[in-house]
């Protein structure tokens, strides 16, 4: 297990390294590096001095090593807009995004799993058919549009829930969170639901397919032949088997959820790093862009690692392989 974990972490480090090359090439070769590091307002003379100071006259590989060296120490440059280290700005916004994404994932399981179970166990029931038809919309509708409709319905017309912002927050261990206050929860509800919609469709389809497949297995019949209660068969024998693909999808979906929070945060003016990156792109605050991209890459790699880990814990067959 330990060697396996070490190997996986080494692989993860390699991926991150590869992505730094991509991001570096992206911003420094395709884009204009001078624009990235130096404020567009600077005079020609200042620019020239900065180019030399920042080493843009150096060969590319040396520039990359400098960039990498700085990145490792957490120095990605200073945001023009906030006049703070870009990484700090991103990290300040990270909790809001994570709170939104985690809430969305929880919703996707809380809603997707029961609906999927229903559609799986009663495939011909009208409700199940409606659920399956609805899930197609969850896949194909652009999420910003759904977000607008949610605001229009629940905020503008019904007036039940607020449309923008994070509401009242509480500080827990120095991190501001919304979900502990009623006002915060109200603010969280619509964006979380909006962000969850795609994952809900995903989870419920996967659950349904898993249930359909598992129900035909001999071990379910054998479990019935043992005289087990239906509840135990559904919640232990069926659920434990379909949980493995669902954990994978939900886990990997976390990265996608964080990425798509860009859209939801813009619609609901949620002060997370997704809204930050859009603003940064619009004002060309490129250190922020670089910091955001690196943050996302690290997040993705960590998530992949965690998903693999959970996977091996859930499926005994895989656990054995990794031990050997």
């Amino acid at each position: 297990m330990a060697t396996w974990l070490l190997r996986r972490m080494f692989q993860a480090a390699l991926v991150i390294l590869a992505m730094t090359v991509l991001v570096f090439v992206g911003v420094n070769v395709i884009g204009n590096p001078v624009d990235i590091m130096i404020s567009p307002d600077a005079t020609q003379e200042v620019r020239q001095r900065a180019i030399e100071a920042l080493g843009f006259d150096q060969p590319l590989w040396r520039q990359y090593l400098t960039f990498l060296g700085n990145a490792v120490t957490g120095d990605i440059g200073k945001s023009y807009v906030f006049n703070q280290p870009a990484l700090d700005v991103i990290l300040q916004r990270l909790p809001a995004t994570l709170e939104l994404a985690v809430s969305a994932l929880l919703l996707s399981i809380l809603i997707g799993l029961p609906l999927g179970l229903l559609a799986g166990f009663r495939p011909d029931h009208p409700t199940s058919r409606a659920i399956m038809a609805g899930s197609i919309f969850g896949f194909s509708l652009p999420s910003f549009w759904v977000g607008l409709m949610l605001i229009m319905t629940f905020s503008v017309y019904l007036g039940w829930l607020p449309s923008i912002g994070r509401g009242q927050t509480v500080s827990v261990l120095g991190i501001e969170v919304s979900f502990l206050t009623l006002d915060g929860l109200k603010h969280l509800a619509l964006p979380a639901l909006n962000l969850a919609l795609y994952q809900i469709s995903m989870v419920l389809r996967l659950t349904r397919a898993g249930v359909r497949e598992t129900l035909h297995q001999d071990f379910i019949k054998f479990a019935r032949a043992k005289g087990l209660r239906p509840r135990r068969i559904v919640f232990v024998h069926v659920l434990k088997n379909i949980l493995i693909p669902i954990v994978t999808v939900v886990g990997l979906g976390f990265g996608h959820t964080v990425a798509f929070s860009v859209v939801t945060e813009t619609v609901f003016a949620w002060p997370g790093m997704g809204k930050l990156i859009i603003d940064a792109i619009n004002v060309l605050d490129r250190p922020i862009i670089v910091a955001y991209l690196m943050m996302i890459v690290v997040l993705f790699v960590v998530i992949n690692l965690l998903v693999d880990l959970t996977y091996t814990l859930l499926d005994p067959r895989i656990r054995l392989e990794t031990q050997e």
């Binding site: 992206g26 395709i30 990997l252 996608h256 990425a259 798509f260 859209v263 940064a280 792109i281 862009i289």
Partner: peptide
């Protein structure tokens, strides 16, 4: 494996 929106975002951010 990379979310579509992120790829598009990266490209448009650079270009």
């Amino acid at each position: 494996s990379f979310p579509t929106i992120l790829t598009a975002l990266m490209i448009l951010a650079v270009l």
